[in-house]
Design a protein around this nucleic acid. Structure first.
Lengths: 260, 260
DNA sequence: GGTGTGATTAATTTCGAAAATCAAGGTGTT
DNA sequence: AACACCTTGATTTTCGAAATTAATCACACC
């Protein structure tokens, strides 16, 4: 009613109503890659995906090529697709640019703040916070809980940036956030990470609502680097060289790698 | 020999050796869109492309979906593909972020400058400059000349940014440059634009080689905004509302729009 | 015993046709 | 005459199979 020309960016997440199989497959694949269901470096066999998602060759390939452009999947010549590797240097680069670009997005959004913006941010924050403390999430599996929280978390950040006014900036943020989430989730699981950063979210929201741009940006900057460092620390303990795991010789075994 | 792990970003342009038909189709489509051979807003009919490029359905769709992610093509629900529209606001946004991000890339590249970097930049500049003044380009059609110059121009800019050390930054620059080029070429043709900005390139190279970061960044910033304003001025004269042209009613005629 | 070459097998890419979807034109009813 | 519904033709999407390419193994040769 209020703003009919507003076009929501292709933010990913909930079961949106997808018009084509390609679109649906894209979201499912993206979610599975970011959540780690499809681990980094793993070969993506169309046969497996075909059975898992119950679709034909074309939608899978069309979705995969979009993910290639997004950088979540790599396509080696004529040797099929792989989930993109995780590299420490990449994580640092992502955190660096997330901090820079999201800070700018936040700054612009605060300058252009509207009542809708406030409402959306508060709503998103509430949902996330409440989900953390409410025991309802015990009704779902760990993974579902993580997926849900991450969805809320993403939406909270996006709500803050939404009115920045620059489509390109939003797009870059979106891309970086996706990749950043993948790194984080590869290294630390849900309930843990939320505890570590929850009060930063609160402070961030508060500063933003108070229109205290400088403080908000400072908090956001720290928040992003904090999250990246958390991932880095846990990641170093857990997997010394993420890319070495799957890249090496394919274990010599050729045929079916796993069936059931 | 020197740096075997260096991976050239998927910079587009010349007839690289493509391994798959999808890849080849991607480059051809991208080139045709950026150069304006496929005009903004135009419907992309797979049947037409199929005949023009002599490929089947799959490679075309796979390529198109990659361009959708790049923002050069839009996919409306189940109604096929279109070349993305040109909008004034978008041009301004692109110029803004080109200036910011390329400045940062240039700054970092200068800080990390190597001899290879110098050599590549000088080589690229020479090629571009020489092409402008040399009458050889009369051997080709206007369009070929424009294509060639744009290729050199792009390479010159990229050469300056190449050692910035941030893959994500390079990627953003790449994307923005592609889109920026499309806007420029939609409004002003080759020989004209080169005359207007050629001495800026020279000054830019000079400052960069002298390691005068601040001056180089200042020149680059002006250069980018200058180019955008040129496009804007010419564009406003020529096409008052770029997006209105093709969006409107499809002229009521349904069947085959054009055959030969 | 190691190495290079040819044949076999698995996988990916590509095509062409069937199924699904959309847009326009036509028909009938109020 | 206006509106809704159905039919029809064209386009897009999807599938499954053929063609192409890469990988693996076996065998002979050095």
């Amino acid at each position: 009613m209020s703003k009919p020309q507003e076009k929501t960016p292709p933010l990913f997440g909930q079961p949106r109503n997808h018009k084509t199989l390609t679109e649906e497959t894209l979201w499912r694949l993206r979610r599975d890659i970011i959540s780690g269901t499809l681990p980094a470096g793993e070969k993506i066999k169309s046969e497996v995906i075909k059975q898992r998602y119950n679709v034909g060759t074309s939608p899978i390939r069309e979705a995969l090529f979009q993910l290639v452009t997004d950088g979540l999947v790599t396509a080696d010549g004529q040797r099929g697709f792989r989930v993109a590797e995780l590299r420490e240097a990449d994580l640092l680069d992502i955190a660096d640019w997330r901090a820079r670009l999201e800070s700018e997005a936040l700054r612009r959004s605060i300058e252009a703040a509207t009542l809708d913006w406030e409402a959306r941010a508060i709503a998103a924050f509430h949902r996330m916070k409440r989900f953390e403390s409410d025991s309802r999430y015990r009704d779902m599996s760990e993974k579902e809980a993580a997926d849900t929280w991450e969805e809320y978390h993403r939406e909270f950040h996006f709500a803050l940036y939404a009115t920045c006014g620059s489509p390109w900036l939003l797009r870059f943020c979106e891309l970086l956030i996706q990749h950043g989430e993948r790194y984080r989730r590869a290294y630390i699981a849900y309930p843990r990470v939320a505890k570590a950063i929850t009060q930063e979210h609160e402070a961030l929201l508060e500063a933003a609502l108070a229109r205290d741009t400088e403080r908000a940006v400072e908090i956001l900057d720290k928040h992003i680097h904090h999250a990246a460092n958390l991932a880095l620390q846990h990641g170093m303990k857990r997997r010394p060289r993420p890319q070495a795991a799957a890249r090496g010789k394919p274990v010599k075994r050729r045929g079916k790698t796993q069936s059931a």
